[in-house]
Design a protein around this nucleic acid. Structure first.
Length: 295
DNA sequence: ATAGAGACCTGTGTGC
DNA sequence: TGCACACAGGTCTCTA
C-alpha cells in the first residue's frame, strides 16, 4: 500500500490514538517479517509511553520512553488498524470473515490512549515485505542514512532536481524511484508526475539539466509536478488498490484520479491530446504513460 | 559508480 | 473446477 502519501495517511491515522499513549503489551504472532523482530522487541516497548510518531520517506518512526526509535516500513501490503479494545471483536462477526481479516496480523499493540481509552493497534502484512526495527541509541540507522529529499514542502524545486539528475543516463522513471535522490515516490506517483510534466519515462534523466548544471524548464515543471501529485494524493488520503490505507479501514480515493497508472489502452485524459495510454516495463516494473504528449 | 535482474512472500485475476 | 502464469503501492543484494 505504501508510497509517501499512503504512509503519511497511516501516520496521521495512528497519531491521535498513539501519541501520548502507554504501551500495555506487545504480542508478536511470528518471529519475523521481512527481517526478524529485534531481540526483546516486546519487552523493550511494554510499559513505555509513546512520545510521538513521525515519518521519513516511507518509514514510520515511533518514539517511546523505553526503547530505541522504532522504524517501521509497510512494504507492499503492510497496514495498521486501530480499534477500541472493547469493540475489537464484534459479537456476531462471522467466523470466516474474522479469520480472513486476521490471517496476517503479525503484531498487536495493546495501548491506553491519553484519553484513557484502551485500544488495539494491529500490524497486518500478507506479503511480509514490511518490517519493524530499532534505530541506534542516537536515532540513526543505515536505512535512514542515505535518503534523498522529501517531495513535500518546498525542499524540491527545479534547481535541486537538476542537481540530482545531472549526468544520469538512467531513464527518468528509474531516477525518480531512486530513494537516495528523492525519498518517498513509488511506482504510481512517478508515472503520474511524469504525465503531469509531459515528460517521457524513458528520457535519460540527465537531459533535464543544462550543460552548465542549471535546471531546464523541464526540470522546473517536473519538480512542480512531483510536489503537486504528492500533495493531491495526500489530500485524497492516498490510493487504495488492493489493501486498505487508513487505520480505521476506510479507503483513500486518489486512485479514481489516476491519469495514467493502470490505465493501459485508455485515452490520454489531457485535453486535445488524443493519445492512448501505454504500459511498458522498466527495470522490471510497469510504467504507464502517453507516448503522444509525454516527450 | 551505476544500471538492471533476481530475490524475498502471498494473493488475485486471467486464460486454457 | 483446476491449474499455470502474470502481476501487485518496495527495496535489498548481486551482477555486469
Amino acid at each position: 500500500m505504501p508510497e509517501l502519501p499512503e504512509v503519511e495517511t497511516v501516520r496521521r491515522g495512528l497519531q491521535p490514538a498513539m501519541e501520548g499513549a502507554r504501551i500495555d503489551s506487545v504480542e508478536l504472532r511470528r518471529p519475523d517479517l521481512r527481517f526478524p523482530f529485534p531481540p526483546n522487541f516486546a519487552e523493550r516497548l511494554t510499559g513505555g509511553q509513546i512520545v510521538g510518531i513521525g515519518r521519513r520517506a516511507k518509514y514510520l518512526l515511533l518514539e517511546t520512553t523505553t526503547a530505541p526509535l522504532l522504524i517501521s516500513h509497510l512494504g507492499m501490503t503492510g497496514s495498521f488498524r486501530v480499534e477500541d479494545s472493547a469493540s475489537a471483536r464484534t459479537p456476531g462477526t462471522f467466523h470466516h470473515e474474522r479469520s480472513k481479516a486476521e490471517a496476517h496480523d503479525h503484531a498487536v499493540f495493546q495501548i491506553t490512549s491519553k484519553d484513557g481509552t484502551a485500544r488495539r493497534v494491529t500490524f497486518n502484512d500478507p506479503r511480509r515485505f514490511g518490517f519493524m526495527l530499532f534505530a541506534n541509541a542516537d536515532g540513526s540507522h543505515p536505512m535512514l542514512d542515505n535518503l534523498g529529499v522529501e517531495p513535500t514542502g518546498n525542499a524540491l524545486n527545479g534547481s535541486v532536481l537538476a542537481g540530482l539528475m545531472q549526468g544520469k543516463q538512467a531513464p527518468l522513471k528509474a531516477a525518480l524511484l531512486d530513494q537516495t535522490l528523492i525519498a518517498g515516490l513509488g511506482n504510481i506517483y512517478v508515472s503520474e508526475a511524469l504525465w503531469r510534466a509531459q515528460l517521457s519515462p524513458r528520457r535519460a534523466a540527465g537531459t533535464i539539466v543544462k550543460r552548465n548544471g542549471a535546471p531546464t524548464e523541464r526540470a522546473a515543471l517536473l519538480a512542480d509536478a512531483v510536489r503537486a501529485v504528492i500533495d493531491d494524493a495526500l489530500r485524497a488520503g492516498g490510493s487504495s488498490l488492493r489493501d486498505y490505507v487508513h487505520t480505521d479501514g476506510s479507503l483513500g480515493y486518489f486512485q479514481h484520479r489516476f491519469a495514467v497508472y493502470d490505465r493501459e489502452g485508455e485515452p490520454c485524459p489531457r485535453a486535445g491530446c488524443g493519445g492512448t495510454i501505454r504500459r511498458i516495463v522498466q527495470s522490471g516494473r510497469s510504467t504507464f504513460y502517453c507516448p503522444v504528449c509525454q516527450r
